[in-house]
Design a protein around this nucleic acid. Structure first.
Length: 592
RNA sequence: CGGGGAGUAGCGCAGUCCGGCAGCGCACAGCGUUUGGGACGCUGGGGUCGGAGGUUCAAAUCCUCUCUCCCCGACCA
C-alpha cells in the first residue's frame, strides 16, 4: 500500500477527549475515529489489525473443531422473552420497535438465537457435540462508556458456543477453549492471566476470565506470588484473622453524638476499626415461588475495617440483583442510618446476614438504631442471631492467601475474554433438546466463550507502546514492513530504486506499506514510529550508494544493514524470526 | 442517576469575566527555496462560535431552556 493513497490522517496533537494511551494512539495513528459515546469507526489501518486478530481467532477456533456462522444483530423481542432476559436486563438491552410496532432488540450477546438455531437442526444425540462460533457486532447500551475502546457500546465479539450431550462433554471441551484462548492472546502478543470468575445466577458451574494486567483495568484481581492463587476480587477468598479471645462483656449503650461513620466511631471511642461492626442496608430482588420478582430488605453486617463484597452477598442470598436501600426503607425496618444495628430491628421484614468473622468476634461496637448512640460489647448469639452467617467481605491488598496464607496483592486488569459453562438454561428456554440412545428427551448442555476484539487491540497497544507511538506485534500489525522512501523529486534514480524494492516485496507476498509521500524525512520517520509497523526499511540515496539499506525494528530499536540486492530474502528471514519469537510464547496450560 | 469539566475551522487552543470586524498554532491549497528525524518564505481556502429562545442599536460573550462529549462515582455480560 502506498501512503499517498492510504485513507488516513495522523494527528500530531493528542485529541483532548482521549485520556488513556491506547485511545490516544488509536486516534493519532488513524486506526479509528469516534462517532458517538462508545461508538467508533474503523479506518483502514485499524481494520487490518482487527482482521488479523480475528483470523487468529478463526484459526484457533477451527483448530478445536469450531464452525463459523453469522447470526443477526437485530432480534425479535420474543426470543429474549423466552429466556426471560427481556425482563431481567435493564437499559443495557437496546430495545426498539419495527414499522409494524413489533418489539425488537439489538443483540448484546447471542445465547438465545444460537440455541434457537441449534434447536431447529438438532434432534438426535448422533448430531452432538459440536462448536459454533461467529465474529459479530454486539450492542450494549452501557451507562458510561469510557477509556476509548476498553468500554464501548457497539463492539465486535468473537463468541463461541458449545453444544454437548451432558456435563461430561462440556467438561471435556472447556479446557480446549482454555488452551485456545491462551493461544489466541499470545499469538496477538498479549500477556494474559486466567482467573476464576463469578458464575452468578446463570446456573453455570465454572467460569474463567482472561485478564490483561494494566493499571487502567476496571477489575481488581488478587494474586498470590507464593502459590499462584489468583481470582477476581468479586469472588476472591482469603484467610481472615483469628478473632480475639475475650470474655463476652455485658451490653452497654454509649452516647456518641454526630458519630455516624466507622472512622469517626473508632476515633471517638479510641478503638481500632476492627473492633466495630458495620451495617450495610440493601434491597435485593429475589425470585418468589412462581419465579416472579419480589423485593427483600437485606441487612448485612461486616467488620468495620472490612468492605462488603456485593457479589458474595448476592450469591449468598441467591438474589437476582442488589441496590442500596433508601432512607425510608431503612427506617421502615426500625434501623437508623449511621447508627445501624442488628439489635432491635423488625426481623420479620429483614433478611439479616452476618459475616462469619463478625459472628465469631466478641465485644464489638455496633449502632444502637438511635441517632447519637452505639452499643459496646455486642456479641453474636447472645444479643442477636442472623438468618445466614457466611463470608461476605472483599479481599484486598495484603490479606492472607486462602491457599497458603501468604499476603495477596491486588492488581488491575481488563477482561479481554471469558469462558463459561452455561449448562441448560438457554437450551431449555429455547427448546434445544435431543433424544438420547434410549429415546429420552434431554436438554443440550451449553458453554459460551467470548473475546472482544476492540478491547483486545486496545490492550495490545497499552502493553506495546512508547513515547513515539505503537509497537505492533508482527502477527497483528497492519503491515509487516514499512518502506520509508527518502528520494526527492531531484533524485529520480532513488525513487525508481525504491519503487523497484516495493514491487519486489509486494510480489514476494510481504505486506508492505510504502511511504511515497512528498514529505520531509522527519515527518516520515515520526509517522512510521507512530503507526508502529514492526520493520522499517529506509531507502535513500545514502543506502543505495553503499549497497546497504537500514532496517530498524520498531520493537526494540535495533538496526540491521541489509544488502540492496537481497532485500526480499533478508526481510523474509527477519519476519520469520519475529514470528518465531511470538510462537515461542505459546505454552500448554492446565485449567487453574 | 449523582458530582465535576468542556463544546469556537480537520486537531490543539485563545477570545467569554468587562457585549462592539471571529483569532492563533498545526493541518490543508498554490508558488518558490529546502530535503536522512515533525523546514522556511509569500499567498490563499476553510466557521450555523453545539442548538433553540430571550435581553440589546449590537451577543461567541449576558439570561433561560436544551443537546452532546470527557472524567470520578453508581451501575455493568
Amino acid at each position: 500500500m502506498r501512503m499517498s493513497q492510504l485513507f488516513f490522517q495522523t494527528l500530531r496533537e493528542v485529541p483532548a477527549d482521549a485520556e488513556i494511551v491506547s485511545h490516544q494512539l488509536m486516534l493519532r495513528a488513524s486506526l479509528m475515529r469516534q462517532l458517538a459515546a462508545g461508538i467508533f469507526d474503523y479506518m483502514p489501518l485499524g481494520l487490518r489489525v482487527k482482521h488479523k486478530c480475528e483470523n487468529i481467532m478463526r484459526a484457533e477456533m477451527d483448530a478445536i473443531g469450531g464452525q463459523e456462522v453469522v447470526l443477526p444483530v437485530v432480534h425479535p423481542a420474543e426470543v429474549w422473552q423466552r429466556s426471560n432476559r427481556w425482563y431481567e436486563i435493564g437499559s443495557d438491552l437496546m430495545r426498539m420497535k419495527d414499522r409494524s410496532d413489533r418489539d425488537m432488540v439489538l443483540a448484546m450477546t447471542h445465547e438465545e438465537v444460537m440455541a434457537d438455531l441449534v434447536q431447529q437442526v438438532v434432534s438426535s444425540y448422533r448430531q452432538l457435540p459440536f462448536i459454533l462460533y461467529q465474529i459479530q457486532t454486539k450492542f450494549r447500551d452501557e451507562p458510561r462508556p469510557r477509556a476509548g475502546m476498553i468500554r464501548v457500546r457497539e463492539f465486535t465479539m468473537k463468541d463461541a458456543y458449545t453444544f454437548d450431550l451432558d456435563g461430561e462433554g462440556l467438561d471435556a471441551v472447556y479446557p480446549q477453549f482454555y488452551q485456545a484462548y491462551f493461544n489466541i492472546f499470545r499469538r496477538c502478543g498479549l500477556d494474559v492471566i486466567a482467573v476464576e470468575s463469578d458464575v452468578g445466577m446463570m446456573g453455570g458451574t465454572m467460569a474463567h476470565e482472561f485478564m490483561a494486567l494494566t493499571p487502567i483495568g476496571e477489575d481488581t484481581l488478587l494474586l498470590c506470588d507464593a502459590c499462584g492463587y489468583k481470582a477476581n476480587r468479586q469472588v476472591a477468598e482469603f484467610r481472615k484473622p483469628a478473632p480475639s479471645e475475650e470474655e463476652a462483656l455485658s451490653l452497654e449503650e454509649v452516647y456518641t453524638p454526630d458519630v455516624n461513620t466507622i472512622a469517626k466511631l473508632a476515633e471517638f471511642l479510641d478503638i481500632p476499626e476492627s473492633k466495630t461492626a458495620k451495617a450495610v442496608f440493601m434491597v435485593a430482588e429475589m425470585a418468589d415461588d412462581k419465579g416472579d420478582p419480589r423485593e427483600q430488605f437485606v441487612f448485612a453486617v461486616v467488620r468495620g475495617d472490612m468492605e462488603l463484597n456485593e457479589t458474595k452477598l448476592t450469591n449468598a442470598i441467591k438474589a437476582r440483583r442488589l441496590r442500596p436501600a433508601r432512607a425510608e426503607e431503612i427506617q421502615a425496618i426500625g434501623a437508623e442510618a449511621g447508627y445501624g444495628s442488628p439489635i432491635g430491628i423488625d426481623r420479620a421484614q429483614t433478611l439479616l446476614i452476618v459475616d462469619d468473622l463478625v459472628a465469631a468476634a466478641p465485644n464489638l461496637v455496633a449502632g444502637a438504631n438511635k441517632a447519637g448512640y452505639h452499643f459496646r460489647n455486642v456479641n453474636y448469639g447472645r444479643d442477636y442471631e442472623a438468618d445466614i452467617v457466611t463470608d461476605l467481605v472483599a479481599a484486598g491488598e495484603g490479606d492472607a492467601c486462602p491457599v497458603c496464607g501468604r499476603p495477596l496483592h491486588a492488581v488491575r486488569g481488563v477482561e479481554v475474554g471469558n469462558i463459561f459453562k452455561l449448562g441448560t438454561k438457554y437450551s431449555e428456554a429455547m427448546g434445544a433438546y435431543y433424544l438420547d440412545e434410549n429415546g429420552e428427551r434431554k436438554p443440550i448442555v451449553m458453554g459460551s466463550y467470548g473475546i472482544g476484539t476492540g478491547r483486545l487491540m486496545a490492550c495490545v497497544i497499552e502493553e506495546h507502546n512508547d513515547e513515539f507511538g505503537i509497537k505492533w506485534p508482527i502477527t497483528i500489525a497492519p503491515y509487516q514492513v514499512m518502506i520509508v522512501g527518502l528520494g526527492t523529486a531531484k533524485q529520480p534514480d532513488v525513487i525508481e530504486a525504491t519503487e523497484r524494492i516495493y514491487a519486489e516485496l509486494t510480489a514476494a507476498g510481504i505486506e508492505t506499506l510504502y511511504d511515497d509521500r512528498d514529505e520531509r524525512a522527519g515527518v516520515k520517520f515520526n509517522d512510521a514510529d507512530l503507526l508502529g509497523i514492526p520493520l522499517r526499511l529506509t531507502v535513500g540515496g545514502r543506502g543505495l550508494k553503499s549497497g546497504q539499506l537500514e532496517l530498524k525494528l520498531r520493537r526494540d530499536g535495533s538496526q540491521y544493514d541489509i544488502p540492496t540486492n537481497d532485500v526480499v530474502a533478508a526481510l523474509k528471514r527477519i519476519i520469520a524470526e519475529e514470528e518465531a519469537l511470538i510462537r515461542a510464547t505459546l505454552a500448554e496450560e492446565t485449567l487453574a
